[in-house]
Amino acid sequence: MLKTFEGRPAATAGRGKDPVNEPMIRHWCEAMGDAHPAYTGPDAIAPPTMLQAWTMGGLSGHTDRSPAYEELFDLLDGAGCTSVVATDCEQEYLRPLRPGDVVTFDAVIESVSARKTTKLGTGHFVTTRMDVRADGEPAGTHRFRILKYAPAEKPAAQAAAQPTAEPAPETRTGTQPRPRRPRPVVNRDNQGFWDGVREHKLLIQRCTGCATLRFPWLPGCNTCGSPHWEAVEASGAGTVFSYVVMHHPPFPAFDPPYAVALVELAEGVRMVTNITGVPYDKVRIGLPVHLEFLRVDEELELPVFRGSEG
């Protein structure tokens, strides 16, 4: 029955609510921290990964959505698959999008999987393909995949467990060692950062060509392209710029739920890190945090940021 939905339209003759425009490009680049010069100036193009952004309907949605999608969701809901999670997306770019381009699109339900069992529960993967045009010319393809599933019941012991405010160092329970955190990839481009961590310093890069600060460590400057730089020690002060609470997928070395944050340092760069000192549900955008170093095991120490509920 579900296979009959494959090939049916999810949206027909859709139209972006706004033409490609400079303010949205600027907002996107600021949010992503992307200062590439191709996205500004008289010959600016939109970042390729914005392909889907121009097709989104916002809070009010689109009026051109096909009833087939609603019918499919009603069937899945009726089968107990009442929860949904986005799993992945794929994009193919055929031409750059420029300010003034009018975006139109068609979407089709490309595939509906057989019932699958995952750690979240059992359900079906639904893939939608969107063909995007700019001023009538093919501009790209966007495939978006979700899992529509029936939530798995948690074991009683897991449901009763209380999350800790911060990860604990690896210890032994009985004869079983606690699983180790994955090791960071250290190479010639970021060796200096990890050397700083060993000395309890948070080092960021400063371009000696244009003085732009950058993080994470890169071999060249995104602003001027210079390969020359110097290391600068950050003050350790920052605020939570954005965050997500991780529930799934569970990983042996971590105890979900826990908060992963994008912290904006006082110097203006941002880094992904753990927040300690406060429960995961007390982390908020704008929360002041300060640097500390967490000993994970006998070999690994990581820079994290401690917040305060007060």
Rank of each mutant, 00 (worst) to 15 (best):
F125L: 04
T127Y: 03
T127I: 13
T127Q: 07
T127R: 04
T127K: 10
T128H: 12
R129S: 02
D131L: 12
A134C: 10
A134L: 05
G136F: 01
A139S: 09
G140N: 03
T141S: 09
T141K: 06
H142K: 09
R143M: 08
R143V: 05
R143C: 04
F144G: 02
R145G: 05
I146H: 10
I146M: 11
L147V: 07
L147F: 06
L147D: 00
K148Q: 09
Y149H: 00
Y149F: 05
Y149A: 02
Y149S: 03
A152I: 06
A152K: 10
A152Q: 00
K154N: 11
K154L: 13
P155K: 06
P155G: 07
A156Q: 12
A156S: 10
A156F: 11
A157E: 11
A157C: 10
Q158I: 12
Q158K: 15
A160N: 09
Q162N: 13
P163A: 04
P163T: 10
T164N: 14
A165S: 15
A165K: 14
E166S: 07
P169M: 06
P169S: 08
E170H: 14
T171E: 15
R172D: 15
R172N: 15
T175D: 14
T175M: 12
Q176N: 12
Q176M: 14
Q176G: 11
P177R: 09
P177G: 14
P179Q: 10
P179F: 06
P179R: 04
P179A: 09
P179M: 09
R180N: 14
R181E: 11
R181I: 15
P182C: 14
R183S: 07
R183Q: 12
P184E: 12
P184H: 02
P184A: 12
V185L: 14
V185M: 13
V185H: 15
V186N: 02
N187T: 13
N187F: 01
N187G: 05
R188V: 13
R188W: 13
D189Y: 13
D189E: 15
N190P: 05
Q191M: 14
Q191S: 13
Q191V: 15
G192N: 09
W194H: 03
D195P: 03
D195R: 10
D195N: 11
G196L: 00
V197C: 00
R198G: 08
H200G: 10
H200T: 06
K201R: 12
L202M: 01
L202A: 02
I204E: 03
I204L: 02
Q205M: 03
R206G: 03
R206T: 01
C207G: 05
C207R: 00
G209Y: 04
G209R: 04
C210T: 05
A211E: 11
A211F: 07
A211G: 08
A211V: 09
T212G: 07
L213N: 01
R214D: 05
F215K: 00
P216C: 07
P216Y: 00
P216A: 10
P219G: 03
C221H: 00
C221L: 00
C221T: 01
